[in-house]
Amino acid sequence: MPVRIWRTPLNIEKAKLPKAEIHIIKNQCKGCGFCIQFCPKDVLEESEEINERGVHPPKVVDESKCVLCSFCTSICPDFAIFVVEKLCEEEC
């Protein structure tokens, strides 16, 4: 546990982490790699496949690690990646 949290939050049972849904528009990617490099949670990595432009677009390693900071959306110069909150049912 990080040092700065001194007590357990009272609503820890009710609190839910938001679930992210990462969309990658593969053929719009130019392969600069900013999203992979600057993701604070290392959610993305370079994929094996080659897109229409002849580069390797990113792929999602673990979507559950994403904390919806949307830094990848902002740093992408080609508008090729965006993150939205997953609207889920009661079960998730």
């Binding site: 719009q28 600069c32 902002s74 110069p77």
Partner: peptide
Amino acid sequence: RFPHIWCEGCGNGIILHC
């Protein structure tokens, strides 16, 4: 009109996004 004409890794796309 997309994808735009700017090179791979050019910052202009980021400025447009911001």
